[in-house]
Amino acid sequence: MSKSTHQMVQMDRRQALKVAGAGVLAMGFATAAHATPEDAAMAISKLGGSAKADSAKITIDLPEIAENGATVPVNVTVDSPMTAADHVKHIHVFAEGNPSPEVISFNLTPSTGKADVGTRMRLGKTQNVVVAAVMSDGSVHVNKKEVKVTIGGCGG
């Protein structure tokens, strides 16, 4: 710490500004760190099984444009008989562009009767919402949908 302070003193103003600028940039980057599609894919790969992408079994109901990113309604249905032998065990919802991709995991049982779940979530920016369904046989189905999130509306 003392060393860097010492160095700072020796810098001319322009150099100091450059360093300060880089610092601000780095800080900004750290606070604005967002998950990436890879982070979401990583989380899904941990669910086991080979994930079937673009699965027609999963229907994601989301607004095309969210009225406000703080409260975005989402509903997910998975095509499944929901019997003891063949049912959906988990429905995981990921947001690719949020600070961390996990949103919510629903845990279902045959007594759930129908794989149809809903909630409301926070989305920091326009991004894909990825849904992974884990079936009772261990198979994983994945689907995704994009939501546009507008920022800079009227505040208060």
Partner: peptide, 28 residues
């Protein structure tokens, strides 16, 4: 119901304030 879980959810900070969750149960 009777101690057995029919449905559950694990939430993360990305769930909006005042969490709203909808699901189905089979009346047995």
């Amino acid at each position: 119901l009777g101690g057995a879980e029919i449905f559950g959810a694990d939430m993360h900070p990305a769930v909006s304030a005042n969490p709203y969750i909808t699901f189905y149960i089979k009346a047995e």
